[in-house]
Nucleic acid binder design. Sequence first.
DNA 1: CCGTATCCACAACGATACTG
DNA 2: CAGTATCGTTGTGGATACGG
Lengths: 153, 153
Amino acid sequence: MRREGALADLGSWQPTRCSLALAMDVIGTKSAFLLLREAIYGTTRFDDFVRRVGITEAVAAGRLKELVEAGILAKQPYREPGQRTRSEYVLTEKGEALFPAMLALIQWGDEYLQPDGGPVEFVADETEAEVRVDVRTDQGDRVGLDGLRLRRR
Amino acid sequence: MRREGALADLGSWQPTRCSLALAMDVIGTKSAFLLLREAIYGTTRFDDFVRRVGITEAVAAGRLKELVEAGILAKQPYREPGQRTRSEYVLTEKGEALFPAMLALIQWGDEYLQPDGGPVEFVADETEAEVRVDVRTDQGDRVGLDGLRLRRR
DNA sequence: CCGTATCCACAACGATACTG
DNA sequence: CAGTATCGTTGTGGATACGG
């Protein structure tokens, strides 16, 4: 694979326009990633985020506020019958769209950082089929880094 | 989707065993992500990493060393005919395995953070077909966060 | 249950200068 | 080309205490 040549062909590269750099400006901290993992796992309550992620309330409050401002989480008041009003943080569509990225990182960790694979996996609700993330062409063929090149849009 | 219930069913949760937390301990900085993006784009030389990522030499040197120690990059001396010996940083198999995660983040940024989509895209070398990353069951059906649940391994 | 307020430690990063 | 050295600033996060 001659990706370097392919990149050079693209000419001058604008780091500020890179989508990954923009993404990391929004979610580029460990705590943000772990909060998002929890949100994907279904956690919605402040207290659960704090306990399950293992961060302090101050950090959780700050990060959650940033994620809400970024439109990734929505903070909604709700009231169970007979209870007082509480807050919950739920993923927006923008937030749910991060699921492939999160799952890809979890999968990578399962495979290369865990001695015996990861502790949990996602399965389809009915069929129990395990779900995985991978890279495919629009024809549906799975592809790796070899055999790819960059194209300017 | 009742993921919260599904998670609660899993009982006590060990944050330290989470693959995402382990992954973030290794690549959990903005500069690490951007260096990996460059490596995936085909960059191999110190100087190019510094210029294209837009970080200082000190940061690049430190991060690259960590990525080498983590087994994600390999530092190799090489010599072009008639030139002096240089160093290059190439992705190991472990490093290449991060491609789906990186592409997923880039895709997310393209879609939600860029006004007109991202500046570049990956295409298959021969067919020119655009490649994308998504989540599927092992039967090949694309699935979203709804309709999934967690299962303990 | 859902946070805020302070203080502190350290990690991450930029700027600059310098070396083989 | 491929780094190292030093300095200063900001970001990130832990600990603790406190309030609606």
